[in-house]
């Protein structure tokens, strides 16, 4: 075996997911050569930005040993509330300010989750199920339930900003929006936190064993609190990008997406029991889900089969490694 590959390379979820993605791309290209073009890539990338940012947050929560289902509600709340606020107060505000406010609102809502989970020690699923409903209900009742398409002009400017654009020889248009940079920024920042800070390592440690973490003196309460605030901030960012790029503040959007996002993260190898999860895996999982949602039609599978396909992928992608681990354990015992 080659040395530069990690020892468990062939048994990792990441490898499996990457394999499925490659297989799908080959299949898609064979059935329609137009699939493998820069246009497709840029389309998929655009579709990945919001899901990707949300997935990074969801991954962090899974690593810490919890689960968060409220992040989509936070995202839409932060997006809609900041849009409404600026339309009323200062419609000509620059987009970075609107973004910062959305991120702050997201952090605040995340802190509410964090308070219940870290300080009161309540189960994460129950808390976030509750806040999902509360955040959404509060938004629709008190802030508004109208779709707003007349966004502050700076948000539209943001959505027009592109890193690269062009037309292929075949005449297909492609563009990569500024928002892609936000995803890159989130990835780099999260990578830094997880890999290079004691805070990040503490998140892994807590996910591995809360009791052991307490015993060696990790501040479990504040670490957990940080996780939920950070996830809230990411949701605020994802929400405002979603609104800007879609050029519409829709209070009914995003909610319902949380299970797909968690599915992407789990496909990438994060475990629901906590302690395991990588950025690479998460991004591959997102890529796979996005490809399935956008390109199944290319290989001749009707779009109505989307959720069936995603379900099968989850069962295979998480079931095969789990089954293998069980077999290995049985042999060892």
């Amino acid at each position: 075996m080659t040395n530069w590959l990690p020892k468990d390379f062939w048994t990792r979820n990441e490898t499996l997911v990457a394999g499925v993605i490659i297989a799908f791309c080959v299949l898609a290209t064979l059935s329609d050569p137009r699939f493998f073009t820069i246009t497709t890539v840029s389309d998929l990338l655009r579709a990945s930005i919001v899901i990707g940012i949300l997935a990074v947050g969801a991954m962090l929560v899974l690593v810490s040993g919890g689960i968060d289902v409220s992040f989509t509600a936070i995202a839409v709340f932060a997006m809609y509330a900041s849009t409404v606020f600026f339309l009323a107060v200062w419609p000509d505000a620059p987009w970075p300010l609107i973004f910062v406010v959305s991120i702050l609102i997201g952090s605040l809502l995340g802190a509410i989750n964090g308070f219940f989970i870290a300080f009161l020690g309540l189960p994460t699923l129950i808390v976030t199920l509750g806040t999902l409903s509360i955040f959404r209900g509060f938004l629709l009742t008190f802030i508004g339930s109208q779709r707003i398409s007349a966004l502050p002009p700076s948000m539209r400017d943001f959505s027009r900003g592109v890193l690269a654009r062009g037309t292929t020889e075949a005449g297909n248009f492609y563009s990569i929006p500024w928002a892609a940079l936000a995803l890159v920024f989130v990835i780099v920042l999260t990578w830094f936190i997880l890999k290079k800070t004691m805070l990040g390592r503490s998140i892994y440690a807590i996910g591995g064993s809360v009791e052991s973490a307490r015993r060696i003196g990790i501040n479990v309460t504040w670490t957990q609190f940080f996780v939920y605030v950070y996830v809230g901030a990411l949701a605020g960012l994802a929400g405002i990008i979603h609104g800007s790029v879609g050029r519409m503040a829709d209070p009914f959007s995003l909610v319902g997406l949380e299970l797909s996002v968690i599915a992407a993260v789990v496909l990438g190898g994060a475990r629901l029991i906590g302690g395991y999860g990588t950025l690479t895996g998460t991004l591959l999982g997102v890529a796979l889900i996005v490809i399935v949602q956008n390109s199944l039609i290319v290989v001749g599978i009707p779009t109505t089969w989307q959720s069936v396909t995603i379900g099968i992928l989850i069962l295979l992608g998480t079931g095969v490694p789990a089954y293998r681990a069980k077999r290995a354990a049985a042999r060892a015992g």
Partner: peptide, 25 residues
Amino acid sequence: SLFPNLSVAENIAFATQLSTHERFY
């Protein structure tokens, strides 16, 4: 009281690094 998901090296060094108030890993 070990962390099953972390490496041997990290398990051994974690408490030490906490006690010296390291911020970065």
